[in-house]
Design a binder for these strands. Structure first.
Lengths: 206, 206
DNA sequence: GTTGACGTCCAACTTTCGGTTGATGCGTCA
DNA sequence: TGACGCATCAACCGAAAGTTGGACGTCAAC
């Protein structure tokens, strides 16, 4: 009997996951929570074998935070990310934080159940599209943007000019340009708009 | 007894909506479909009183298409949009296509059931956030972009330069610039990146 | 039928803004 | 300590962006 905790802010999704889990004989919903903050206590409280964790909890925080909290509290319970986003950044962050798998919400019930079983058995469970994306990344490893570069890129995406960025970042305009040229070479583009587009494509930005 | 059709491409969401509907005594799930193309026949086949329709069906089409098909076939069944997107464009398109309401997937079960009842009774059902957004739009009516302007803006968003846009649209570069200045004044911005950002904010672009 | 508003299109002008190059201090890690 | 990466900056250059002004067609209103 595998006891599952469902953590998602959408009532509809909670109900759907619960229905799927409960329809399988040897799976049971141990509990449901709607905010990341309640995950840690819930894992303790109910004897949870596997956590189904959403990534985006609206304004209440993120699933990755909850995952970090969990690990900081010494819990080793396998956590299965179940989300509708498949951006590279999200996937990497989740896996680095110690997720046992990454499933997509458009998955068939079978895939979900299989993922839960795998996680409970200590194995890794990745949705096919996610696995493909990671493989692709390994093949052509993008050079990672530094945090400063990302910061600049975000401001660019919000429509700021170089001088405006320089003001808000309290650096010279030259610095901003420098960061941007680095971004361009790393992303293999030649203009700010292209850079924003590429970054979005690769899931580097919201 | 209100008979509900559920149309969504995500199995999890279908299961969740079904669970919610079935938990109410006088509501019943008449059927479920996973693609927009099956909505019309399903409405005929099962005696459907209300349709819960998702907007984004992945690559299989869109909910608005299904809604149009439905109306073209003479059906007047109330259709309730249930989606997680709340962009102005989506909302307007749905309402213009004859939706009986627009709910968000993060809604509580109560709100969902209330929406279904309202739709079945021939009333309108809007999620609070959606209603707020529409009210906001009525207060400050953005000047609508022409289709050509939107076309140009899309290309800008994808990182194209003016000359590239001119090529793909087979017009002069001057024309592109002209369109863009119009876009700028309408959106009250002064640069292409700002324009893209604003358009995204207002839900004019994907 | 005429007027006017609007959309699409274009040319020529100006210049700002963006991007390149090269160089410096600073921390870190081997 | 020496090499490397990151953040910072100055000065230069030129293309690409944006402005202005205008032509033409269409459609609706009057």
């Amino acid at each position: 009997m595998i006891r599952v905790l469902i953590a998602d802010d959408h009532p509809v999704v909670r109900a759907g996951l619960a229905a799927m889990v409960d329809s399988v004989p040897d799976l049971v919903v141990a509990g449901q929570v709607a905010t990341p903050g309640h995950v840690v206590t819930a894992v303790d409280e109910f004897r949870v074998d596997v956590v189904l964790l959403d990534l985006s909890f609206g304004k209440d925080g993120s699933g990755v935070e909850a995952l970090h909290d969990l690990r900081n509290h010494g819990s080793t319970v396998p956590v299965l990310i179940v989300t509708s986003f498949e951006s590279e950044r999200d996937i990497l962050a989740a896996i680095e934080a110690g997720a046992a798998g990454y499933l997509l919400k458009d998955a068939e019930p079978d895939a979900l159940v299989a993922g839960i079983r795998a996680a409970a058995a200590g194995e890794m469970a990745l949705a096919p599209r996610v696995a493909q994306r990671m493989a692709q990344r390994l093949r052509s490893p993008h050079e990672a943007l530094t945090s400063r570069e990302l910061e600049v890129l975000h401001l660019v995406a919000s429509g700021a000019s170089n001088s405006q960025i320089a003001n808000t970042l309290v650096v010279s305009e030259a610095t901003v340009k420098s960061h941007l040229t680095h971004v361009f070479t790393k992303l293999d583009v030649s203009s700010r708009t292209e850079a924003v587009h590429q970054a979005r494509q690769r899931g580097l930005m919201p």
